[in-house]
Nucleic acid binder design. Structure first.
Lengths: 199, 199
DNA sequence: GCGTTATTTCAGGAATTTCTGGAACTCCAT
DNA sequence: ATGGAGTTCCAGAAATTCCTGAAATAACGC
């Protein structure tokens, strides 16, 4: 089975990028193929299309399932598992974000929290803990934002993206409204309390 | 040289996470150490602290410099290079985002654009190209948003994060204002108003 | 049950990445 | 120049990751 040049190029690119994205070449290629395929493919079709071993495809599919990046389809009258990707790219984006957060951020957040519980035994440790606290605070803020944003329906999310930095125009307006309502409030920035330890 | 337990734990964790973050253990450890260190360290101090080879540290530092994640300091009366990390975590975040985009997204964007230039030779290719177009459009939208947001000063960025999904409340409000100002427009949805207005 | 087909597991070989020690290079002070 | 401190480069060793073929397991129709 030989792929159309366009598909071939896409598949190869995803294979190459795989290593940068934290997946291996086969996983990247299988995903790319499924994404472009007009209909669900079974494992043997993938083997034929990519020219890798059957077991390799099996492992790649497992990995993709662990990432929630492929869907299992059963065609009528066919025992074999067929696979597709979600066709809404926004769904794919959400999945990717969620899984990467789970793998790349959550473990660190846990460790940072643990380290912040310890009481520092030296001046250096005190300093280290302050640095860790700064990092922790930033990550918490980011994940908090993410947790809210991910609940938005697609159209809302898209609207937000289109608005881009323009949001700040709205923020300014809202700010002025607040300032008008409560003129006494002092302006505290998030990071100012941590930047006092400059070299 | 033996590190305080707190620092040790942090350093080891960054070493372990390194592989998930697309850097190697040594790079992760060196970065973690520099981040926590109360003052700039030279290569030999890093060697002593981490117990890895001199050349390994050298390569790790090169890599970190390629990522713009470390700063080079020259202490008076000392020829050796000393290294630190930026102490503002928001600067670090921006750097990370920028570099990851450059490595993980931009190459793909280029390839997708190229593939979209080709004229499809078959029905399958036509379908594939449509899928590629969808992916391309999403990535463009994301990077467009990112390019705008990254220009915001820290406080603005922090404000945005604090607001979280609450932005959509503002969007709704703004929408109603627009709808109120131009009631003749038939059944406009929230985002359609902003589409044309966010250049 | 039994044979057939589909899928998964797994040991070990292949490929890639990481790490090391040492040689080479650069820069500066003498 | 020369010596020495600091740094980088590089070839091979070590470690890790990836891929395969063969064997095991599962699922179904008969």
């Amino acid at each position: 089975m030989t792929l159309p040049p366009l598909v071939q190029a896409f598949v190869l690119h995803f294979g190459e990028m795989g290593s940068r994205w934290g997946i291996n070449r086969s996983v990247g290629q299988v995903y790319a193929l499924l994404y472009l395929s007009p209909e669900p493919l079974n494992a043997d079709q993938i083997v034929a299309a990519l020219g890798v071993s059957r077991s390799n495809v099996s492992m790649a599919l497992r990995e993709l399932q662990a990432w929630n990046l492929v869907l299992l389809r059963h065609l009528p009258g066919d025992r074999r598992d067929h696979f597709t990707t979600p066709d809404d790219v926004w769904v794919i984006l959400r999945t990717l974000a969620e899984e990467r957060k789970k793998r790349e951020i959550d473990p660190t957040l846990t460790v940072l929290r643990e380290l912040l519980m310890q009481s520092p035994g030296s001046e250096d440790e005190r300093h280290a803990q302050a640095r860790i606290r700064a990092m922790h605070a930033m990550i918490e803020q980011l994940t908090g934002w993410y947790d809210e944003v991910k609940r938005l329906p697609n159209e809302r999310l898209a609207a937000l993206l289109r608005l881009g930095a323009g949001v700040t125009r709205l923020l300014e307006t809202a700010d002025r409204v607040v300032a008008f309502a409560k003129p006494a409030r002092p302006a505290a920035t998030t990071e100012s309390q941590w930047t006092k330890e400059s070299p």
